[in-house]
């Protein structure tokens, strides 16, 4: 007795393209999930340094490093104190002149290359983003180079 011919003979050749439906399903789940958890806004931190007491910190070289540098932010504009010699940078068309401040700070940095710290004197009602802007201007040079100016920033309140 002959064997019965195999059923496979009747099998049609399967279609060439892969069945992508399961992997599509997986992608459909994974992609929304990853999109939700992905963070596109990068956060960073700025360190604040508490102002050191004069005398205790620089007892020896107080002669070579004469004064602190202060930037006070008033209603009318910026005022550079200490090494800044009381220079006043008024507001330009009702906005703080950050460009001018940056230029003046670069000049001061050239005169005192060793100096690293700056004290910002701020008014009570100054909004936080303006504070951060002033801090940025004081910490780094403008432009692509990102050279540090006075990275040790401390904050204080203007005497009223």
């Amino acid at each position: 007795m002959a064997y019965r011919p195999s059923n496979r003979r009747h099998l049609k050749p399967s279609s060439e393209d892969l069945n992508l439906t399961p992997i599509m399903n997986v992608f459909m789940i994974i992609i929304p999930f990853l999109l939700l958890t992905a963070v596109f806004a990068k956060t960073a931190i700025i360190d604040i340094y508490l102002p050191q007491e004069a005398g205790s910190s620089a007892a020896g070289d107080s002669a070579s490093e004469p004064l602190v540098l202060t930037v006070s932010v008033t209603d009318s504009g910026f005022e550079l104190g200490g090494v800044g010699n009381g220079m006043v940078l008024p507001k330009v068309s009702d906005r703080y002149d950050f460009k001018q401040l940056s230029e003046e700070l670069v000049k001061i940095k050239e005169r005192y290359p060793e100096k690293e710290d700056v004290v910002l004197l701020l008014q009570r009602n100054l909004p936080y983003d303006t504070i951060v802007k002033v801090m940025d201007t004081a910490r780094e040079m403008d432009g692509k180079e990102r050279k540090p100016l006075f990275p040790l920033v401390s904050l204080g309140e203007t005497g009223t």
Binding site: A44, I45, I46, D129, I131, M135, R139, R146
Partner: peptide, 8 residues
């Protein structure tokens, strides 16, 4: 606020 700071 937005800043140019880079520190992680």
């Amino acid at each position: 606020p937005v800043s140019s700071a880079q520190k992680k």
